[in-house]
Design a protein around this nucleic acid. Structure first.
Length: 462
DNA sequence: TGTTCATGG
DNA sequence: TATCCATGAACA
């Protein structure tokens, strides 16, 4: 594809997204007002309790003034200088970190209070943002195509692309404010594993292609290797958890250019959430014998954190040296080409210029082109809804997913059309897409808020 | 204005 | 060489 096609994609994309902005999403302003008051009371409670503690009075003495728990500088001085604690982690600039991971690791009860109040504040900020941007009970988030260096989109006022989802409590609290039009329902369609599939279009690694075409479970296989399981059992909650940890703590970081040391740290740390124990995070200390995963790994010859790091190192070497060696060779070639040319071209006709590190040069074209798949689909869908005067509307987009406000009469036929556009029409339009694409659907009942979203079990036969 | 933290993909 | 891309709030 060439730069004319790239321009047209952005032009048509801007028009389609402007219609989504105009459509907007309903917001329950009464709920916002109630909940904001409620959160304010909860925050006051935590503040009061925190100030009653000995931990606080010592901080007050040290500070010589009223301490500000929101100041990372004050907090780190107090913890790491006055109290002499050892920072579990450092910031990018080399100071002692006071983020959630570090404060949890320090294991001081007053810090848990502080973390709780940070969480409340964060939730409050989302609701205040909605309240500030609401016009007559409607939000109209902006969707930008001109701000991101990879030619992805961004969103602001309010940002539609970072509303809580993983933390169930925060998810319910924030998305409970957002509604479809009266008598309508929210529908979401998202491309599954889009970036992995688009990456495979670039590097064409046969093993990866096989995983994607045959529907084999790459994360499950890696979990078996990392945790020395006999066989992956998806009905086992521990296995399912380890698979998620593997996906987020090894596979994706490796794709983005991380190395075994960080991966080992993340995986060991993450076991803290597992019933079987958090032993390895206590750095080099031998495992506690009464924890089942610990026992299991000891039985396999991995006795401590150091052993585990070596183990992850070996798996990393196998990952790039054997399993995905064609992918690895592509990365080297691509990086070499960038150093020669000073730019990288996307399959979609865009060019990224400027100073890039190795990870940047490799990841930008994948991230950008993956988003363009979504954008192309959104343009087609918008054109279709607009031309045939459907009552359903696109109301937003989150990198690899589209959010719609749907009239119930149009629900099933709309799903069929979306499936055709996203998984059949797109690969026909762009011949560089050599991997089959898949989409999943989620939906809410009529008049239900976004917090009530559930999976659509099967879209066969619609 | 740059840094840190938290949220999403 | 060592985790990619954003927005937004608060602080210094």
């Amino acid at each position: 594809m060439n730069q004319i096609e790239a321009y047209n994609l952005l032009h048509q994309g801007a028009l389609a997204l402007s219609r989504a902005e105009e459509a907007g999403i309903r917001v329950d302003v009464d709920y916002l007002e109630r909940k904001i008051k409620h959160l304010a009371r909860q925050m006051e409670y935590y503040e009061r309790k925190f100030k009653e503690s000995k931990f606080y009075s010592r901080w007050e003495k040290f500070q010589g003034d009223e301490p500000n728990p929101n100041s990372t500088v004050q907090l780190r001085e107090y913890l790491y200088t006055e109290l002499g604690k050892k920072p579990p982690k450092e910031t990018e600039k080399g100071f002692g970190s006071v983020d959630k991971e570090s404060l949890t690791e320090l294991n001081i009860s007053e810090l848990n209070m502080l973390l709780e109040s940070r969480k409340l504040k964060k939730n409050m900020d989302y609701l205040l943002g909605f309240q500030r941007e609401a016009i007559d009970g409607w939000l109209h988030p902006n969707f930008n195509l001109h701000l991101v260096k990879t030619y992805r989109s961004s969103s602001d006022h309010p940002n539609f692309q970072n509303i809580p989802k993983r933390d169930k409590e925060a998810m319910k609290l924030t998305r409970r404010a957002l509604f479809p039009r009266p008598g309508h329902q929210i529908l979401e369609v998202d491309y599954s594993g889009l970036e992995v599939r688009i990456a495979a279009c670039y590097h064409k690694d046969p093993t990866m292609i096989k995983y994607l075409k045959e529907g084999f479970d790459m994360h499950g296989d890696m979990a078996v290797q990392l945790f020395k399981l006999d066989k992956y059992d998806s009905s086992n909650a521990n296995h399912a958890y380890l698979r998620a940890a593997t996906k987020n703590g090894f596979v994706f970081p490796q794709f983005y250019g991380d190395y075994f040391g960080n991966c080992a740290k993340y995986l060991a740390c993450d076991w803290g959430k597992l019933p079987s124990g958090n032993f390895l995070y206590s750095q080099g200390v031998d495992v506690e014998p009464d924890r089942s995963l610990a026992k299991h790994l000891v039985g396999k010859g991995i006795r401590n954190y150091k052993d585990f790091t070596e183990h992850v190192k070996a798996i990393e070497e196998d990952f790039w040296g054997k399993r995905f060696r064609v992918y690895a060779r592509w990365k080297e070639r691509w990086w070499h080409d960038y150093q020669k040319k000073g730019y990288v071209d996307l399959y979609t006709g865009f060019r990224c210029r400027g100073m890039m590190g190795k990870n940047d040069a490799i990841n930008y074209p994948i991230q950008g082109a993956a988003f363009h798949c979504l954008l192309w689909s959104l343009i087609q869908l918008d054109y279709f809804l607009y031309t045939y005067k459907w009552r359903s509307r696109i109301i937003g987009q989150i990198h690899d997913s589209i959010v719609l406000d749907v009239h119930p009469d149009e629900f099933f036929s709309l799903i069929a059309h979306i499936k055709k556009i996203t998984t059949e029409d797109l690969p026909k339009a762009w011949d560089w897409i050599i991997i089959p694409l898949e989409v999943d659907f989620e939906y809410c009942e009529v008049d239900a808020p976004w917090s009530e979203k559930k999976e659509l079990e099967s879209t066969n036969g619609v």
